[in-house]
């Protein structure tokens, strides 16, 4: 953890809100929330969130930096876009949730064992490497992320789906050894590197690894 992560934030002052506005995708919308709660009520996972979006917005304004960034809540978002469609203030809530999750991850204070975070990481590493998703590699890594035993169990549970994908040619049975990736892997990687540099510069951060 860096110095930044221990930053003291005054309660109910605008410090953390300003930090969010500067660093989080669509973060400058947070101040526009009018606390109606329609987003929380519309979320299909609403009852399962520790802090539904409405609360997250209030916590940001209240300066609860640690609680927000270490929260599992934003990682619950499934991008169904119900909240965006319904928000009377037209806040891009889904994007803000992803933005917050991403910011917490970049700071390295996102909850380590959060399954969504881990899946996202596996997915990103997979696609960034070859410029194209390696389905078999992705499935294997995902199933076995909690150990061998659980991995086997999951693989058996999903076997019919896997066979179906094989039959329709959606899954390369030799993917682990013979994945082709896209034509210009190098080019893709260069592109991603450049994009990250630009983004970090925009946010005024030193370039860090993912």
């Amino acid at each position: 953890m860096t110095e930044l992560n221990h930053k003291m934030v005054e309660q109910y002052r605008n410090d953390f809100l300003k930090e969010v506005e500067a660093n989080v995708e669509e973060g400058d919308w947070v101040k526009m929330c009018m606390q109606c709660g329609v987003c929380s009520g519309s979320c299909p996972f609403g009852p399962d969130w520790e802090h539904p979006p409405q609360e997250i917005f209030m916590m940001i304004r209240a300066g609860k930096r640690d609680e927000v960034l270490r929260s599992e809540s934003m990682w619950m978002c499934t991008s169904c876009y119900n909240c965006i469609v319904r928000c009377p203030r037209e806040l891009p809530i889904t994007h803000i949730m992803h933005g917050l999750a991403n910011y917490a991850h970049r700071l390295g204070i996102a909850p380590k064992m959060n399954p969504t975070r881990r899946f996202a990481k596996i997915f990103w590493d997979n696609i960034a490497k070859n410029g194209r998703v390696n389905e078999l590699d992705l499935s294997v890594k995902l199933y076995f992320m909690d150990g061998f035993k659980k991995g086997v169990k999951r693989a058996i549970e999903m076997s019919t789906v896997g066979l179906g994908m094989l039959k329709t040619g959606r899954l390369n049975p030799f993917g682990l050894v013979a994945h082709r990736g896209c034509k210009d892997k190098k080019g893709i990687q260069k592109m991603l590197k450049k994009a990250r540099e630009l983004e970090d510069r925009r946010r005024g951060l030193a370039t860090r690894g993912a």
Binding site: N14, L17, K31, M32, M34, Q35, M58, R61, A62
Partner: peptide, 24 residues
């Protein structure tokens, strides 16, 4: 409860844009 009769809703939004914080 924030009650902004008339066209106060626009005024409220303008204040939020200016960075006025609202806490219930």
């Amino acid at each position: 409860d924030l009650r902004t009769p008339g066209n106060g809703e626009d005024f409220y939004r303008s204040a939020q844009k200016k960075g006025v914080s609202f806490t219930k």
